[in-house]
Design a protein around this nucleic acid. Structure first.
Length: 633
RNA sequence: AGCCCUGUAGUUCAACGGAUAGAAUAAGCGUUUCCUAAACGCUCGAUCCAGGUUCGAUUCCUGGCAGGGCUACCA
């Protein structure tokens, strides 16, 4: 309708305004709730053209639209806005169309290009936490929204299964794990601990011992004992000590931190870990076996967490397999003049002309850095999937700079698809007590949090739910749907790029702008429709249309546009806000009218059809948010 | 120090440059002989500061102020 009127105005521009006009001048918007109208045309842009008051301009255009568009009942000019009122017949036809279209709002599969969405990408030495939940829910939802908008989507993640951090866990496990009566070290099997938690425990264990050893080392140095280290270290330490003289407290603090760093780097335990990494890179059989074993524990642990989260992946990339990629590209890039080599052999890119710094892409010893790997992996992915058109990286905003550089490098290397790479940068999740810090033990574990919200959902549902007819299995499933639904909705309703506050209390709330609020509406409509039986729309055009109904139809017709906007903006929050608004309107309507007991059959069927359309919109919206829509609750 | 992001009711979140800045929550009041009250209605309450661009600025620009992040031959 909007496009129809726009085309009409453009076509008759000369008669209306005495000249051709720019399409940009025709600005439509949704009419405010508190004024009459279904679509609003902003009149201001035309005032200059017509040399008259906004009121006169509005009336002139309004008269024109009334005459030329049969579905327009009337036009009202208010404060420079032309509010167009559509006929009831128009809205009834719209409803009929929404009702007849099975997945109204979703674009045909494959109607848009293929996109790869990367998310999750955890380290294998730390269990998943609250931040990962936002990442996973966000990445999964964006992937689903892109699908709904017609894209082919490949969901992926990079598993950081390589590097010094893995060796730390491995070493700590070898050194500190107690032996049981059978002489075995701790395993998930003999402890019953989740694999990722067990490995995480030893990572922490490593850090503890590292700190302890570093502290001892510093005390030794302070007493002049340098027996365990080289002369360079001795000199460095002495220099730091002299530097502290006559400095203020803050400066001393800074120097102390450097001393601590120096000590850490000289601990035997870290040296051992580094040796282990060297062995790993040389494929030492013993180290490799240990690595494989411990990683498999982690994967099992992650797998169960992902299952509970309800997320999945089409293709996995392992850092151990990709970390060597990219070196060839860098070497080729030197020849092409994209990169340059410093005298020490290290390779850099100069981005100062683009307002950025110089950035290292290959170390002087020829080994790869993170950036090298990312370059290689990106190129590799486009080889793996020839139909691939673009990529979305779901990674926290602390890496904004990294991705800016990465995309720029890819572009300079001559890859046209670099334009279609997008860093879905999301803000940190804060707790009411402040930032999550692993050292202070304030990290909210993903598994624990999910269990907690499910438990809370169970408690609340038993108190007020309608679950008499459900089997024990169905009940368990329902508690999970509600608990996780609430959690996901809570994390997704906020604009991804914004830092957000996570209040554990509120995340499991059931009232207000929450997941269960939406789910409840779905359950309520579901039982209503179950009782209603067949819906008959044959007499629909004779039905009356009240204000509430019209508002809902209006919202329903905005669903396709909403999905598209959410997809182009990579924002599940747009879907969440939309569906909340729709449900609020529906609840208001539900409270205001009778449905099943309505005597006029045309009206009754209209309301049933409306309810069905709303139910579907809820179900589809929740689906792309990764939230289940219960039939009863 | 430089660069990037964010500042909206007490609190958590909304608002393609558009009309009287919406919700939720908290506080108070009200709605069940009727389809699920996990609902609905009413009351109270906000754009960090100073300039600028515009018919019109929470939104864009400049300068402050506040909070966070990034500035590793770590990953």
């Amino acid at each position: 309708m909007e496009n129809h009127i726009k085309a009409l105005i453009l076509e008759h521009a000369t008669t209306l305004f005495g000249q051709e006009i720019d399409e940009q001048l025709i600005q439509f918007q949704v009419t405010r709730k508190d004024v009459e109208g279904d679509l609003t045309l902003v009149v201001f842009p035309f005032v200059k053209l017509l040399r008259c008051t906004p009121l006169e301009a509005g009336q002139k255009i309004g008269d024109f639209i009334e005459q030329h568009v049969s579905d327009v009942e009337k036009c009202i000019v208010v404060n420079g806005f032309l509010n167009i009122v559509f006929s009831n017949n128009y809205w009834l036809t719209q409803l009929n169309e929404v009702y007849q279209t099975a997945s109204y709002g979703f674009a045909p599969k494959g109607s848009r290009p293929t996109i790869m969405v990367e998310y999750s990408s955890p380290n294998t030495n730390k269990p998943l936490h609250l931040g990962h939940l936002r990442n996973n829910f966000l990445g999964y939802s964006v992937a689903e929204i892109l699908k709904a908008d017609g894209h082919e989507v490949i969901k992926t993640q990079v598993i950081n299964d390589r590097g010094i951090h893995i060796c730390k866990s491995m070493l700590a496990w070898e050194k500190f794990s107690p032996l049981n009566e059978k002489g075995e070290r701790e395993t998930p099997q003999n402890t019953g601990l989740k694999g990722d938690k067990l490995v995480g425990k030893y990572y922490v264990e490593f850090d503890k011992n590292l700190q302890k050893e570093a502290k001892e080392l510093i005390s030794a140095w302070e007493t002049g004992d340098f027996s365990s280290c080289s002369n360079e270290v001795k000199t460095a330490f002495t220099n730091f000590q002299t530097a502290k003289i006559d400095k203020d407290e803050k400066a001393i603090q800074g120097i102390d931190d450097k001393i601590k760093e120096l000590a850490k780097n000289n601990t035997s335990i870290l040296l051992e870990a580094k040796e282990m990494l060297v062995k790993w890179e040389a494929r030492d059989p013993q180290v490799y076996l240990l690595w494989t074993t411990m990683n498999s524990w982690v994967y099992d642990g992650f797998e169960s967490t992902y299952t509970k989260m309800g997320v999945d992946f089409d293709k996995l990339y392992f850092e151990s397999e990709t970390y060597l990629l990219g070196k060839d590209q860098v070497i080729q890039g030197i020849a092409d003049g994209v990169f340059f080599q410093k005298p020490d052999g290290s390779v850099w890119i100069d981005l100062t002309a683009d307002g950025l710094d110089e950035k290292l892409v290959l170390r002087s010893d020829g080994t790869a850095v993170y950036m090298t790997q990312d370059i290689g992996t990106a190129i590799d992915r486009f080889h793996d999937f020839p139909s691939l058109n673009g990529m979305v990286y779901t990674v926290g905003n602390e890496q904004d700079y990294h991705f800016k550089v990465l995309f720029l490098i890819l572009k300079k290397l001559g890859y046209a698809w670099a334009e279609n790479c997008f860093h879905l940068s999301y803000g940190m999740v804060d707790l009411p007590t402040g930032k999550m810090k692993s050292r202070e033990g304030t990290v909210v574990d993903a598994d624990d949090l999910m269990d907690e919200v499910i438990e809370k959902a169970e408690e609340m549902t038993k108190e007020r739910g309608h679950i008499e007819s459900l089997s024990p299995e169905e009940r368990t499933a329902l508690f999970e749907q509600i608990g996780l639904g609430g959690l996901k909705y809570y994390l997704l309703k906020v604009d991804p790029k914004k830092r957000m506050m996570f209040n554990p209390e509120e995340s499991i709330d059931l009232t207000g702008n929450t997941g269960p609020f939406i789910q409840y509406a779905h359950a309520r409509i579901s039982t209503l429709l179950e009782r209603a039986g067949q819906i008959d729309l044959s007499e629909i055009q004779t039905a009356d249309l009240i204000h509430e109904e019209k508002e809902i139809i209006k919202l329903l017709t905005q669903f396709p546009q909403t999905i598209h906007e959410a997809a182009s903006g990579y924002s599940p929050a747009i879907v969440a806000n939309y569906i909340y608004d729709l449900v609020k309107n529906y609840n208001h309507f539900y409270q205001a009218v009778k449905i099943l007991s309505e005597e006029n059959t045309a009206n009754k069927n209209l309301r049933l059809a409306l309810s069905e359309c709303v139910r579907r919109a809820i179900q589809q919206s929740l689906m792309v948010l990764g939230v289940q829509a219960p039939m009863k609750m």
